[in-house]
Design a binder for these strands. Structure first.
Length: 350
DNA sequence: CTATTAATCCGCCAAT
DNA sequence: TAATTGGCGGATTAAT
């Protein structure tokens, strides 16, 4: 999994730096809406990505709702219709493709929609579905071999229709590679906020959450994120406590050896339990948390220098942090911070 | 960026 | 017998 803070522009690294700072491309979001779309689920996308919140420090979005067939569409319940402004060709430029659910789970997908979804994945775009929208993704085959969530009422059906999809139950959403699938209705909000945080960082996600008056999403960041709505009954106390401790002590030695000692188990058992509980390895998890911490400090503490941030986040040196930061977010810590400093863009205007 | 040294990770398997 | 544990080797990945 790779996050690119250059807003998904694959050519960003070749673009002149001052040009990039002066005019950031808007993050391009396109939502596919089917016939008999559910108004609430579609509205989630509109609320998160279709509202200009640049005044709150949120990047601009280029937001569009598209449908395969032009012309007026019915909505589920039939109380009103809707008219989209674009066809599927609009998906070609999208950094993020949303899939809105219809009244019933879609058991088929048109070749055109399927091709557009595959094209988006191969281009490096992200996909997000809400509720039974995961059926559209599954029908297109992009979920094959991946974990996914859907509304609890349809979990069995999804599993039967698409054996290649690993259905995760009792979760709000699942993030596997470039694809986020969310369970019923309101969980779509959590999924979208998670995506925002993944792409733009904690500050942006929290700003949107605050405006929408919902609680900011937590956790995540592994190769495969599963956000649970209820405490996992199979949860591992040893790992949970270890995680709490590690998050409090990111600046300290969090080698596998140290973590094993702290949780009174062998390194081998720690590795196994950790993977069972989080889906990732101890070291990879620590690295991700450290990157998050660094990201957060870059956003919120302009008084700290790179070395201080590296130390606080637990990196041995600024160059180690820089290496991982670039690898994970596609830009250096300094470049990242520049996005959050209001004057950085105007300063170098000639 | 490259090289060298260090740490991590996971299949395997014997011992609980 | 089935399930869990933890040590080992060595390919892979990270730190310096």
């Amino acid at each position: 999994m790779r996050t690119d803070c250059s807003f998904g522009d694959p050519c960003a690294s070749t673009i002149d730096r001052t040009h990039r700072r002066r005019r950031l491309p808007a993050y391009d979001v396109a939502v596919i809406v089917p016939q008999d779309a559910r108004p609430f689920e579609l509205s989630i996308f509109c609320e998160v990505f279709g509202v200009d919140r640049t005044a709150d420090g949120v990047p601009p979005f280029d937001f569009a709702v598209v449908s395969e067939e032009p012309g007026p569409l019915r909505t589920a319940g039939g109380a009103f219709g809707l008219q989209t402004s674009h066809g599927l060709e609009r998906l070609a430029s999208a950094d993020l493709v949303g899939v809105a659910p219809g009244a019933t789970p879609a058991c088929t997908v048109s070749p055109a929609v399927s091709a557009a979804l595959w094209e988006a994945v191969e281009r490096g775009a992200r996909l997000v579905s809400v509720c039974s929208g995961s059926f559209t993704l599954a029908a297109a085959g992009v979920l094959d071999g991946r974990s996914a969530a859907t509304h609890w009422m349809h979990e069995d059906l999804l599993e039967q229709l698409y054996p290649a999809v690993r259905v995760v139950r009792d979760v709000l959403f699942v993030h596997d590679g470039p694809i986020v699938t969310s369970a019923g209705t309101a969980a779509g909000i959590d999924a979208c906020l998670h995506l925002l945080r993944d792409v733009f960082g904690t500050t942006v996600a929290n700003a949107v959450a605050r405006r929408m008056v919902v609680s900011p999403a937590r956790s995540g960041g592994q190769a495969q994120v599963v956000e649970s709505s209820v405490p996992d009954p199979d949860g591992d106390d040893r790992i949970d406590q270890l995680i709490d401790w590690a998050l409090e002590n990111l600046h300290d030695d969090l080698s596998v050896e140290a973590m094993a000692r702290h949780s009174y188990q062998s390194q081998r058992s720690l590795a196994r339990r950790f993977r069972a509980a989080t889906g990732t390895t101890p070291h990879a998890w620590v690295l991700e948390q450290r990157l998050r911490r660094a990201q957060q400090l870059l956003e919120q503490r302009p008084d700290l220098h790179a070395r201080e941030i590296a130390t606080a986040a637990g990196f041995g040196s600024p160059s180690t942090m820089r290496q991982h930061f670039s690898n994970r977010f596609g830009c250096s810590p300094t470049e990242y911070r520049a996005r959050f400093v209001p004057h950085a863009e105007s300063l170098d205007a000639s």
